[in-house]
Design a protein around this nucleic acid. Structure first.
Lengths: 198, 198
DNA sequence: GCATAGTTTCACGCGTTTCTGAAACTTGGT
DNA sequence: ACCAAGTTTCAGAAACGCGTGAAACTATGC
């Protein structure tokens, strides 16, 4: 379990004094770092979380430039990060007439974001796993029925792969349910629960 | 040492020929690779997934040795991996009388495993995030009320941080519900659903 | 058409993470 | 007590992912 990922940045700074630009509010620093951390746990890059957060917390679209200085990143990093965020549909480029800068704003519907990620990434993973498990099961049948090498082993193995399949399929259902509800309805929040056996 | 006997042939294809030990069934290879992949997505190491899977698919406890040769790993890697898996409580060392080897077996209740990971890792992350968000909110109040620098920015920011907090708290509830149900009841599987607004 | 400002792309380097190989350690047998 | 077989630990090597900096590209204004 790679615990790492931490790096809980203490307010105390060594001489490398990365003073985070006067325009970055304390609250923004705290929140963007927290979300950055969380993003890492979720398999994204830290800077994606930090950039998105600043945009989300801003009352107006920001220029790449502003992000660069507030987060102390290189222009390249900002550009690539924005690109990735845009590909995930969680950040949008907006134009302003009479201004040749590119501005960016965050998708402000959290549920839209989440359902998108679940749909495009988590779901794909689960589908892949299901497929692989089915393949494994097929390979087992093929192998077991001709060479009766180890019946107990084959039997247990079939059982267990089927368990895994069941779990994976449940995962798929859960994701589908979440995606579905997230899309149409944001107010089910406090009503979350699981079916209880009757 | 004791591999021979089996793979008498082996026309030797590419020299990088990672032949995966005759004792590793095709089905085992497929499934353990798939689970290994999934584990990576979940933030664990690939080999943890592969090792756990072999144990889970086995009808009897295995020795570190057997894992080493089936997965083509060094003894050190196997040992460390088993250690980590044991710390997560998903693999157990078992002893057999009159046999001085260490044997290992997988926790066979998938839900026990999952609820444990959710409880110890995911939940901790969410709690941390909630805490950070609350700190951010506090920092914002502190800052905003004395220096009335940018009222709109402060207002929006407060709103958005509160949104994030709401989401994080929902996440916590969902995790708690999952953990709770997973612990006491394995048969709610097909009954999963979300509350629908009435 | 050229100069200027802003943005994107990309090869490289750096810091991490993961694995290996070998040495140290344990345990049971003789 | 010593040996043999197995296991764990650890320093270093390889692999990997990420961000930088500079060059290429684009668009605007003169």
């Amino acid at each position: 379990m790679q615990e790492s990922a931490f790096d809980a940045r203490a307010p105390a700074e060594s001489e490398s004094e990365q003073l985070p630009s006067p325009e970055l509010w304390e609250s923004e620093r705290i929140v963007s770092d927290a979300i950055g951390r969380l993003m890492v746990v979720w398999g994204f890059k830290r800077n994606m979380g930090r950039v998105w957060t600043l945009l989300y917390l801003s009352d107006e679209p920001l220029r790449a430039d502003a992000l660069r200085e507030r987060l102390q990143l290189s222009a390249g990093a900002v550009s690539m990060t924005l690109g990735e965020l845009a590909r995930w549909g969680v950040v949008r480029k907006v134009f302003r007439q009479g201004d040749r800068h590119d501005y960016y704003e965050a998708e402000s519907s959290l549920w839209k974001m989440i359902s998108r990620v679940l749909r495009e990434r988590e779901r794909a993973e689960v589908l892949l796993a299901i497929e692989a498990l089915e393949d494994g099961l097929a390979a087992l049948e093929r192998f077991a029925e001709q060479a009766v090498s180890a019946p107990a082993r084959a039997r247990i193995q079939r059982e267990r792969i089927e368990q895994l399949l069941e779990l994976a399929r449940l995962g798929r259902s859960m994701l589908d349910a979440l995606i579905d509800h997230a899309r149409m309805d944001v107010s089910w929040l406090p009503r979350f629960r699981l079916g209880r056996r009757t």
